[in-house]
Design a protein around this nucleic acid. Sequence first.
DNA 1: CTTACCCATAACTCTGTGGTTATGAATTAA
DNA 2: TTAATTCATAACCACAGAGTTATGGGTAAG
Lengths: 107, 107
Amino acid sequence: MSPAPDLLFRTLADPTRRAIFERLCREGEQTVGALTVRSGVSQPAVSKHLGALKQAGLVRDRHEGRQTHYSAQPGALDPLIDWTSQMASFWQRRFDALDDLLKRMDQ
Amino acid sequence: MSPAPDLLFRTLADPTRRAIFERLCREGEQTVGALTVRSGVSQPAVSKHLGALKQAGLVRDRHEGRQTHYSAQPGALDPLIDWTSQMASFWQRRFDALDDLLKRMDQ
DNA sequence: CTTACCCATAACTCTGTGGTTATGAATTAA
DNA sequence: TTAATTCATAACCACAGAGTTATGGGTAAG
């Protein structure tokens, strides 16, 4: 199996970090300074969160002069979608099996 | 917005706990003892994880004599699915807007 | 009744990590 | 050149929480 879901869950578990990612998804590319405003934490904290998001493949950075622009990398959520639908399918499969069993018992 | 995604992400972020949930999804209802075997941790640790999963609405417990049976509660993953598709839609919307802009500039 | 078993809780330890301030590197402005 | 800015890194602190062992409550078995 892919080890990807683990890193994604860990990275998105922190509310501050997830809020930053949500802002990048909603509002598009942002500089570190812009993200720091109304983030509730200091600029170094934001930088560390962005580093974590980048390592998880959730964001991309683009250097332009002395400022760095970050943007969301939506495709990185795919392993998460895969995992959830897989869990759902496991449940569905067992449900179907139970359904079959009940039908056969009914005969 | 629903505060649900936060609890779900936090709960599923721990590998041991997520593994327990995965086993319940794959193999169906299990007792605490059965889950402890090959979990890699002690029985009290498993109990605590099950408590966290229950509080997040991810599992149900059923008491039968002196043993407790736990089973996955798949519908609880819905907020996670909603959140991911919402993030994807934000991205898509901005992509569409950019697309429009480029089309208009092209005229 | 006594013993054995299953699970949950309590009490505690220790690591991971999110937060801070301080500082430096790189770039732009004066 | 000097000063001001933007961001990243370093060093440190504090707390959350995942793990452990010890123990007790409840149920089944002898």
